[in-house]
Every structure is written in C-alpha cells, then in structure tokens.
C-alpha cells in the first residue's frame, strides 16, 4: 500500500526506498497558532525512532496529522505502508469489552482474530470479556497498543507510552514493543516526554521544540548531548 498526500508540489526531495513514513516541511496551524512549523522527519522500515520534547511542543499534533485527523497547511506526508496510532491517554473504547476493542482495530482490514495479541500480552486474555473502561492504566495501554497492532501496521506510532503509568508497568510494555519490533519488523515511532525511556530503547531520535525539530541524531548520541541532558534528563534547565 502506498499513499502520498501532497499539499504543495513535491519539493524535489526523494524518499529512500526503505522509508515507510516521512514528512517534509510540514506546517499545521490551529487558527492563528502555528503548531508545527516546517517539520521533516522520517522512519525507515523496521526502525525504532523517538520523538521527544516538552508539553505543547507539537508532538501529538504531528501524530494526529500523520493519522489524518489534522490537515496540514503546507508540506508533504509520504506514507508507504500502514500506520497505526496509539493515541495519548490510550483512548480505549470504555464501554466495549477488551476483545471488541481489539477487533475494532482491524476495521480498516486485516484479521479480526485477537489470538496473536493474547500471545503478545497474555494478561489480556483473562480480561477479554471485561469492559475496557474498568481496566488499570497499564492494561488499557496494552489494549490500545494491541488495537493498533490488529491493523497489522508497518509503523506503530505510540503517543506518551509512559503517561500516568508506574515505572515497572512502563518498562514491561516498552520491552514488549522492542520485542515486537525485533520479531515482526514493525517500525515504532515513540513519542515521549520521558526522554530517558525513549532514548534508551530507540536507535534514532528527534527533539521537537515549539513546533520545529531542534535536534536529531542517534539516540545514544542524544543521551550524551549536554543540551538534551540539561533539558530532558533531569539536568538543570
């Protein structure tokens, strides 16, 4: 599956053959407010990429634009393959059962059989007939991730994996994501305020500030970058 959304004529930049998702000079406005100001990122096949940055920097706006919820004012999105989006705050269907939540992930196509998800997160199998709204935050995050995976995506974008979850739960779910990436080659775009977590499990990262990419590079380099350490890793701001 290949889809190219062009808002402006292509700026002549080509896309690598192994890129599954890319944006070029993406601009998104909410009325007079510029939420994204010329953002260019790319995710390659099977890659784990982090997008870190403070609250309000435009992280969720970028994901919502990639998913077609927001319309860009200008710029270009290239999507080769299926993108599934795990939204901020998990956003399960609270009144539906866990199993129905999962099955609806395959609405756009794909198998409606949730069994592979129960293999990935065995905890969910025992909860399959429970209302998703009654689950703990960690369990809801698992449901949200599995619902996205049911679409059999080439890239899964996870918005604020760690938000409101206990550290042990976060590391458990993060481990599953890494495992998934290794075994199935699903690319992961991890959007996080928790830079330590994000940079530790990804290979490449972008730092987004005030709607534009401030820094980008290998995650291990960014972990050592003094500016990143000061701003995001518990250093003095």
């Amino acid at each position: 599956m290949k889809s190219v959304e062009s808002v402006q004529p292509s700026q002549g930049r080509s896309v690598d053959s192994d890129t599954v998702l890319a944006t070029f000079d993406l601009v998104v406005r909410y009325g007079a407010v510029v939420a994204l100001d010329g953002v260019s990122i790319h995710v390659r096949k099977g890659e784990m990429v982090a997008l870190i940055g403070p609250n309000g920097a435009g992280k969720s706006t970028l994901l919502n634009t990639l998913s077609g919820i927001n319309r860009p004012a200008s710029g270009r999105i290239v999507r080769k393959g299926k993108l599934a989006h795990v939204p901020e705050g998990r956003q399960v269907f609270p009144d539906l059962t866990v199993e129905d939540n999962l099955c609806l992930g395959a609405y756009r196509g794909g198998s409606r059989n949730p069994a592979p998800m129960y293999e990935l997160f065995p905890q969910l199998e025992k909860l399959r007939y429970r209302r998703a709204g009654g689950l703990s935050g960690g369990e809801q995050q698992m449901v949200a991730i599995c619902r996205a995976l049911m679409a059999n995506p080439d890239v899964i974008a996870v918005d604020e994996l760690s938000q409101g979850l206990a550290p042990l739960v976060v590391s458990d779910i993060a481990r599953h994501l890494v495992e998934l990436n290794k075994q199935h080659g699903t690319a992961v775009l991890l959007v996080e305020q928790n830079a330590q977590l994000a940079l530790n499990i990804t290979s490449r990262a972008y730092v987004i500030e005030n709607g534009h990419i401030g820094l980008e590079g290998r995650s291990s380099d960014l972990l050592r970058n003094p500016a990143v350490r000061a701003a995001y890793l518990g250093g003095v701001r």
Binding site: I69, Q91, V92, F93, D95, D100, L104, Y107, A151
Partner: peptide
C-alpha cells in the same frame, strides 16, 4: 460494535478508520 465505538470514543473510532 463499530457504531457503539463511535459513541464510546469518537476520536479513537476515527483513528481506527471508522
């Protein structure tokens, strides 16, 4: 169920392609 999903969480329903 897809219809109920719209009622339950319209944003998530859109993300799921409904």
């Amino acid at each position: 169920k897809a219809m109920s999903a719209c009622a339950s969480n319209p944003y998530a329903a859109r993300l799921s392609g409904i």
